[in-house]
């Protein structure tokens, strides 16, 4: 039964036998990571900025690396349990006679929506910027907090 659930029933509609191999490989990777206790790797959504979300008993914390941005450059809003972060990263113009050797830093507008796993108290959300890292602290809604149940 377990085998059946892990690998699913064979799929007869493959495009190529390699697709199936790739799928198998991914599942084996997930399995080995889960067994070794590592955080399962989640594919990034491909939207700037990349974020990390953590939780503890009372809060969710959303972090993003936004070097060069200050609080005024950011627009953060919360609706229900979706958090929206948008802004623009500007790179200052340099002197006219400047000749570039390397240009790796990027500029432009961005906006991203993050769906939180549970309800949060929108009134008490706080955000701060420190050394180019944005931290948004979202208190969990009362209903979403774990509750200790006493056994009588």
């Amino acid at each position: 039964m377990i085998v059946r659930r892990m690998f699913n029933t064979p799929n007869w509609g493959w495009r190529s036998p390699f697709d199936e191999l790739e799928l198998l490989r991914n599942r084996m990777n997930t399995l080995s990571r889960t067994l070794s206790g590592e955080t399962p790797f989640q594919r990034s959504a491909g939207v700037f900025p990349l974020i990390n979300v953590t939780e503890d008993k009372d809060y969710y914390r959303v972090r993003a690396e936004l070097p060069g941005l200050s609080a005024e450059d950011l627009d953060i809003s919360i609706t229900g349990n979706s958090l929206a972060v948008s802004g623009e990263r500007k790179i200052s113009e340099e002197a006219k006679d400047a000749k570039y050797h390397r240009r790796e830093r990027e500029s432009g507008k961005f906006s991203r929506m993050i769906e939180l796993p549970d309800h949060v108290d929108g009134e008490k959300v706080e955000a701060k910027m420190a050394n180019g890292i944005l931290t948004v602290v979202l208190p969990k809604a009362e209903a979403a907090k774990p509750r200790q149940i006493k056994v009588k």
């Binding site: 936004l66 070097p67 340099e94 006679d97 400047a98 570039y100 050797h101 390397r102 790796e104 050394n131």
Partner: peptide, 20 residues
């Protein structure tokens, strides 16, 4: 990630190091 540019007088290096 860095930007490096040069003028007659100097070389400027700009590096993104969030969290430092």
């Amino acid at each position: 990630a860095v930007d490096i540019f040069e003028t007659e007088r100097d070389i400027t290096l700009i590096a993104d190091m969030p969290g430092v």
